[in-house]
Design a protein around this nucleic acid. Structure first.
Lengths: 92, 92, 92, 92
DNA sequence: CGGCGCTACGTCCGTC
DNA sequence: GACGGACGTAGCGCCG
């Protein structure tokens, strides 16, 4: 048995198989990060387009993030804020 | 001409055309952000896989970020001498 | 009078007076940034202490940032959010 | 035992002791943030002054950040070879 | 539970 | 004066 691919070995032998694996992982990650960056660009463009039609980008972002959060925990956090503000005797 | 599609109107009328546009922008953005999140997950998985083969994730990240910085960084580092000269001397 | 300090000259002569000025500016800035970093640490400590007495740090931060913002524009932004949500027919 | 100061109680009672503690924490944080903001202003002023003497602010910033990164950066750069070795080979 | 890295936000600058 | 881009800062989530 020649032990060609020891699954969870410490990834040794410099210049050998491990080096090739390393190269591969690096390449895959960099490719994915490139994709991610491109999508981020697309998102920016959509916001720009919306802005061009008169929408308030800042508010759009808030809407997006509101929809992302669980309604209940959101409610709870808001109540805590009210509580703290009340303790401070704040105007609100 | 009855001005059917005022490009940069304040985009306010609830239930009207603007609402539909708003819905559309939100949907597009959320779709893109979902894609982006999925890619982020993929990246995490690659790191996990690498870890499973004995690579040190922290080290991998460092390598990635160094490679990312380099075509900027190295250039900057090289430019710094020029910059010092500029700061100490003439516009260029 | 020999014009020792020409106020808005291009800051020329390498190794001469300008180099000394450069050194000075760098030193002043680095000193200030150090101070700033120390204050940032102090802030972290206060949050920690508050946490130790049972306060919710996340909410504390929200309180701080709320108090920092102008009440009116804050109100306006909230209304815009409500408007957009209404246009989406959102639960709220 | 009357439990006058429960160290890690939920810190909730409006108008009671907790309210006073809350007020105090908020005040301390806001004071520190004010100081920090002032230092940030000082830094801006130094940059302005430098600019007034003909230095290129952007260049100055670059110098500062390079100097800041260096005792980290240079070390990292030096470590990278070791890291590659680690990634390819043994834990260390 | 604390530290670190990533992400998102707001600010400032140069451009048109 | 508006816009877009870059920078620095603050918040959030994950890992150790």
């Amino acid at each position: 048995m020649t032990d060609a691919a020891p699954a969870a070995a410490p990834a040794a032998d410099t210049g050998g198989v491990a080096a090739e694996r390393l190269r591969s992982f690096i390449a895959r990650i960099e490719r994915l990060e490139e994709d991610k960056a491109n999508i981020a660009l697309d998102i920016k463009e959509v916001y720009s387009e919306a802005k061009g039609e008169g929408f308030d980008v800042k508010v759009l972002r808030k809407i997006i993030s509101l929809r992302k959060r669980d309604p209940q925990e959101r409610r709870e956090e808001e109540e805590l804020i009210e509580l703290y503000l009340a303790a401070l005797g704040e105007a609100r």
